[in-house]
């Protein structure tokens, strides 16, 4: 060890680092010009492209056979076909998205149906939901993060049908949480009285995933 900075158990002390961070850590590193006019959550960088991250092969899902089902804690199910989804009131949110792999993309334009519409008539007192996808992916979210104009079933990105690599024909869109919560190829939502971990959450990722609190991993 030639560094003057000793390892700090439980993480570094921001106050200490702020005094003269460059002197002990990564000497000579300057980084890019800081983005102007936008605020990045901690640890994120601005990305112009649209990277793809998935745990397995991209499933082929046709709108002809697509459906989306909501099941409450009593086991009652309500479902929508593609045509039924399209017949519902549509919204066109423009939102910033933040991936846990550190890219953020500003001003993305989507079209889809608000979860407020889909969940309006569902009888439930559950506080949590498990979202399921074609291909077997799952992710858990609090119901409070799906309601109140914060979440959509999105089928259109930037004016075009959502590409299969990005979750087409339809994905969940929950832009205020890290993007692994926005399940691609979405097919179901199961309401749960108690929280249970989904796919990445079982592998150590956070149950909520708020990028502004940098909740990347369990315990953050």
């Amino acid at each position: 060890m030639t560094s003057a900075t000793p390892p700090v158990p439980g993480g570094s002390d921001p106050a200490e680092l702020d005094q003269d961070p460059g002197a002990t850590l990564t000497p000579g590193f300057r980084g890019r010009a800081r983005p102007e006019g936008v605020t990045l959550p901690p640890g994120q960088y601005a990305e112009e492209g649209f990277p793809v991250l998935s745990a397995g092969p991209t499933p082929n899902v046709s709108p002809a056979t697509w459906s989306f089902a909501v099941t409450n804690e009593a086991g009652a199910t309500k479902s929508w076909t593609w045509a039924e989804l399209m017949a519902l009131p549509q919204e066109a949110p423009t939102v910033d998205i933040h991936c846990v792999t550190r890219w953020s993309k500003f001003g993305t334009r989507w079209r889809g149906v608000s979860l407020d519409v889909l969940l309006a008539e569902v009888e439930s007192t559950a506080d949590f939901a498990m979202v399921g996808s074609y291909g077997g992916y799952t992710t858990n979210l609090p119901v409070a993060d799906l309601l109140g104009g914060k979440a959509w079933i999105a089928h259109t990105f930037d004016g075009a049908p959502l590409h299969p690599e990005h979750g087409g024909p339809a994905r969940l869109l929950v832009p205020h949480l890290y993007f692994w919560k926005s399940a691609k190829w979405v097919r179901s939502l199961t309401l749960m009285p108690t929280d249970r971990p989904g796919f990445w959450e079982k592998l150590g990722y956070h149950d909520l995933g708020d990028p502004w609190r940098e909740q990347r991993y369990q315990g953050d």
Binding site: M1, T2, S3, T5, P6, P7, V8, P9, G10, G11, S12, L25, A55, G56, M130, G132, G135, G136, Y137, T138, N140, T190, R196, P197, G198, F199, E201, K202, L203, G204, R216, Y217, Q218, G219, D220
Partner: peptide, 26 residues
């Protein structure tokens, strides 16, 4: 990867990410 597999115990002990940052040396 199925809903059924998501049920039950967390594999967190195996996959837990140590909390916080630590200083390493090149």
């Amino acid at each position: 990867m199925t809903e059924a597999e998501a049920r039950g115990a967390r594999l967190g002990d195996r996959y837990a990410v140590p909390s916080g940052w630590q200083v390493a040396t090149l």
